[in-house]
């Protein structure tokens, strides 16, 4: 009986060592967006939208419920277009900027152009070739700051500038800039 018990203890110990507690990080993602409504005949675009702390916190809050956020990064950006029936513009070129707390405009992407006549409604248009470090890093910094409950930001201003062609015709469309965020979370 003693031998049996010793054997069982050895087996149990072997199994226990395989089941030591492991930290399994979670990598949740969420997507936010800003929307720019364009309706003009001047050919020049300037539209802004704000990303509120509440909007970001809503998403981060869900992640926080899963554990301790170690770091947040931005996985990627893409644009969605909705073109209205009365739009006459055939071509659009835009830049997007994020305004930091000092009022500096930091480029998120630049020189993105699209042939509206070839646009596919509902398709995501990735921005990777057009992205700029300054704006992306600032956005990442803002979100990380918010994740740490620091009340530095009340809102984040994002704006786009650009042109539509041909000049003098009505440009009527919505441009949504989506950015996907991923986080490393310790449960």
């Amino acid at each position: 009986m003693k031998k049996i018990l010793i054997s069982l203890i050895v087996v149990a110990t072997l199994m226990m060592t395989a089941c030591e507690e492991k930290i399994l990080y979670l990598f949740p993602t969420f997507t936010n967006y800003v929307q720019f409504g364009i309706d003009q005949t001047t050919s020049d675009i300037y539209e802004l939208d704000t990303l509120t702390r509440e909007a970001i916190n809503d998403s981060i809050g869900e992640i926080k419920a899963n554990g301790l956020i170690e770091v947040i990064d931005i996985e990627g950006f893409y644009l969605n277009f909705h073109v209205y029936d009365d739009n006459e513009a055939q071509f659009v070129e835009v830049d997007a900027y994020l305004q930091d707390t000092l009022g500096n405009n930091l480029a998120v992407f630049e020189n993105y152009s699209l042939d509206i006549t070839a646009l596919v409604e509902g398709q995501n248009y990735p921005l990777y070739d057009y992205l700029r470090d300054d704006g992306v890093l600032e956005l990442r910094s803002v979100i990380n700051t918010l994740a740490n409950d620091m009340d530095v930001y009340d809102r984040v201003v994002v704006f786009i500038t650009g042109t539509t062609e041909p000049a003098g015709v009505r440009a009527h469309m919505d441009i949504d800039m989506h950015f996907r965020i991923n986080a490393k979370v310790k449960p």
Partner: peptide, 27 residues
């Protein structure tokens, strides 16, 4: 491996491949 893997993309974007449970055997 527990830490996962990070891929650097254009414009300082980053993609995370999740880490695993870092186990050597399963009883």
């Amino acid at each position: 491996d527990n830490d996962g893997k990070i891929v650097e993309g254009p414009g300082s974007t980053r993609y995370y491949f999740p880490g695993g449970m870092e186990l050597n055997y399963i009883p």
